[in-house]
């Protein structure tokens, strides 16, 4: 058996190196927690431990309708936005360096394996401008640079149905280096508020 040790050694070494690299990578990767709000039954995903803290919150279609209706926006706008799978998105810089993100660099993957780009705030604002509206709020800004203590929030919209699942990949830049994360099994909010026992 000893003759087999020599040829095996490089393989073992690289296996060991792989394990160590994996452990190190695991240490720097974010923890994604999935939490159900006991009051609403809605789900939130929180990716912490990164230089960019990232939260994604299910939002009910009725809440989206309420937000846009109370701004006095026309029914066509309210109906269209609320037909999307909408998430509240909160991003926070946890470092002492500037961080930048661009929603145009993000994507989502549906269960059929297809990857899709995400509709940006500019896409929405252009649609609203075509309708003669100057409204430009509520959606997550397309791109931002967050300095120390900066953070932001807004809606992210995915053209999927209530309850549909997908994987969200998002990225940001710090000191010229791009970091990417994926949150698996993100689920669109249900059509109506979940029953709470």
């Amino acid at each position: 058996m000893s003759y087999a040790l020599k040829p095996d050694r490089p393989a073992r070494t690289s296996l060991l190196a792989g394990v160590v690299a994996g452990l190190l990578a695991a240490n720097v990767q974010a923890d994604v927690t999935r939490q159900v709000n006991p009051d609403t039954g809605l789900v939130a995903w929180h990716s912490s431990g990164d230089t960019l803290d990232f939260e994604l919150l299910q939002v009910l279609p009725d809440y989206v309708r309420a937000v846009f209706a109370s701004r006095g926006l026309p029914a066509a706008v309210i109906d269209k936005v609320s037909s999307y799978c909408v998430f509240g998105t909160i991003l926070k810089n946890t470092t002492d360096d500037p961080l930048g993100y661009r929603v145009a660099d993000w994507s989502y993957q549906t269960p059929d394996g297809k990857r899709h780009t995400i509709k940006t705030k500019t896409d929405w604002v252009n649609e609203w401008q075509d309708m003669g509206l100057a409204f430009r709020w509520s959606m997550l800004p397309d791109e931002q640079t967050f300095e120390v203590d900066d953070w932001g929030q807004g809606f992210t919209t995915i053209p999927l149905q209530p309850g549909d699942r997908f994987a969200l990949s998002y990225s940001w830049t710090r000191n010229g280096k791009v970091e990417t994360r994926t949150i698996e099994e993100v689920e669109c909010a249900p059509a109506e508020a979940p029953q709470i026992d």
Binding site: D39, T40, L60, D62, Y63, R65, S70, G88
Partner: peptide
């Protein structure tokens, strides 16, 4: 709408 707003208020502040 009221339910939606209520749900939203419950949802957002906690997070």
């Amino acid at each position: 709408y009221a339910l939606g707003i209520l749900a939203g208020l419950l949802l957002w502040p906690g997070l």
